[in-house]
Amino acid sequence: MRKLLKHRILWPIGALLALVLLNAVSRPSFLSITVRDGELYGSLIDILRNSAPLMLVALGMTLVIATRGIDLSVGAQMAISGAVALTIISDSKTPGSLGTVAVAILAGVAITFIFGLWNGFLVSVVGIQPIIATLVLMLAGRGIALLITGGFITTITSAPYAQMSQGYLIGFPFAFFVSLGAILVISLVVRRTALGVLTESVGINPEASRLAGVRSRGIVWSVYGVSGLLAGVAGILYSSNIMAADANNAGINIELDAILAVVLGGTSLAGGKFTLAGTVVGVFIIQTLTSTITFLGVPPAVTPVFKALVVIVVCLAQSRRVREWLSRIRPTRTPTTTTTTPVVERIPA
């Protein structure tokens, strides 16, 4: 099984290395990292920093997809958490105090966690299809964010809040530590508790899992909660980067990026087996791709074209029809030869 996992993550890593190599060749400055005041700068560092919001959202999306679901509302939830946090800070008399910022962040994240649980409730208890259930919040979420900010783009000045995205810690961008922390916490929770395997079990075969006594409803419910929580943190990072709550543009289209990262990492949209490591690699691929496209002089607004093409290619590559074509081209790997080898049964004497 370890072999299989290795095998699965090999492709995304290969793609990432190829992208990095391409960049390194076409612009040597890509790999260079400069140290200024004990802080690291360079394209690679930018990728680490800028990928943080997507990383958080994609981690949550991985869990949701593992249960055969999808969360389209992550972008809207980012807008909500940013709006909540910045409104609290801007209304506070001490916008620069650590306490205010902590309260603001906690409030923003708590609210999206509740919204995530709401999504989970609609999916697991009411039984609405995940796309539709989360579509409702995707639709209404930005409206809610706009209401919170009163229809304006709230801007603030608050040093501790700016630290979240723009600051440094022991030489590395602070945002990098946030995404690193999220990766570690989620990996630990998923692999050190039974949640990982139970989530996979529900995603692979809901009925068999039910018969084995797995609380599938609770699992499905909580992954949406986690997804909301992580989207909330991502929203904080985003708003800290621009020091403004932009309800219309915060996290716009991030749901597709996140889905793309998950799929690129090797987790199937059909649910079941998931790989967090793959998603992490997938996020870096997307961020590097964005960086490459910007470098090539393509306006950032056009990047969706490239992402759409990647989505199409990846989805087609996963489809059965294309696999059949491929296996026909390589006759050595026809499906008939890969069927299970019968095991010789021992007949007891």
């Binding site: 039974a194 395997v197 692979i204 009925e207 068999a208 006594g213 609770g218």
Partner: peptide, 25 residues
């Protein structure tokens, strides 16, 4: 369709019901 979780390992399949009973944490 209602028994084996095909893409999980034998170990995970054997311990599934026990794990479900013990709870997530």
């Amino acid at each position: 369709s209602e028994g084996i979780i095909a893409q999980l390992s034998v170990r995970e399949n054997i311990t599934l019901a026990l794990q479900a009973e013990r709870g997530w944490f």
